[in-house]
């Protein structure tokens, strides 16, 4: 009986091996602010290559904790450059695979038309109950918002009104549902095809906060997966860059 099982098993392995090789997949951890563009890029990549891309979205700090604890991600698109650099210095990435895939922009946004003026004067005027920001401890856009408010000299006035989203997607959700009248999110979340899609926004001047360089790496787990390399090459290509630009990122 045992031998029959063994035969069945080895036979099964022989049959399955080529199938597994063909259905190549890559597991990608994506910073929440890059959700929408990455969905489009992944769709294009899947169409062009026939491979499958499995995307997980979340806060960069959380991904870091998961990666050092053995999460099965092969490619990591972070919301900053510090976290990938840290992973690199710890020897957890494929050497030389780190590169900047986008430079993010901070925006003060409200779901209501005409609520946020194009100069952001509303922050000085006040009259709102809640300002949503992403957790400054773990989300780079949250830290950038704090920095911008500090340089404007408005942090003390605005801080009591903070409501903090776990990541930038939740921050957007607080504003989108109207529970917070306005808040700081990534430009990419409120922009499509090069235009702000709804509500009202103030594009925070880039000299008010340190540049949000978003770096990507191939993690050690992806070292032997050719699809990981292919995806990263695709990310650097013109097709992907056009998508990334349409969401308001720079390079």
């Amino acid at each position: 009986m045992k031998r029959v099982f063994a035969k069945l098993l080895s036979g099964g392995a022989l049959v399955l091996a080529p199938v597994l090789a063909q259905a190549a997949e890559v597991q990608v951890a994506v910073a929440a602010n890059f959700t929408a563009p990455m969905q489009k890029i992944a769709a294009e990549f899947e169409k062009a290559s026939g491979h499958r891309v499995l995307l997980s979205y979340g806060a960069t700090g959380k991904f870091y904790a998961q990666i050092i604890n053995g999460a099965p991600f092969e490619v990591f698109l972070a919301a900053d450059d510090r976290t990938p650099a840290r992973l690199e210095s710890e020897g957890r990435i494929v050497p030389g695979s780190r590169f900047t895939y986008a430079i993010g922009k901070l925006v003060l946004w409200s779901a209501r038309e005409g609520y946020v003026d194009p100069q952001g004067e509303i922050l000085r005027r006040g009259g709102f109950r809640h300002v949503a920001i992403a957790s400054p401890k773990t989300a780079p856009y949250g830290a950038a918002a704090i920095e911008a408010l500090t340089r404007l000299g408005l942090l003390d006035a605005v801080q009591p009104k903070f409501v903090t989203g776990e990541n930038i997607s939740q921050t957007y959700q607080f504003i989108f549902t109207g529970n917070a009248e306005l808040g700081f999110v990534a430009l990419s979340q409120v922009m499509e095809e090069g235009r702000v899609t709804g509500g009202s926004a103030w594009l925070v001047p880039t000299d008010l906060y340190p540049e949000i360089r978003q770096d990507a790496v191939i993690l050690s787990r992806g070292a032997r997966n050719p699809v990981a390399v292919e995806l990263v090459e695709f990310l650097k290509g013109e097709k992907a860059r056009a998508i990334i630009r349409a969401y308001g990122y720079e390079f």
């Binding site: 806060a59 700090g61 959380k62 809640h130 773990t138 409501v163 903090t164 776990e166 607080f174």
Partner: peptide
Amino acid sequence: GNIPEKTRVVSVQIYDHVEAL
């Protein structure tokens, strides 16, 4: 909304600590 002394309960505080390593 994770507001200290208003809505930041222990379970959320633990989550924050873990996320911040």
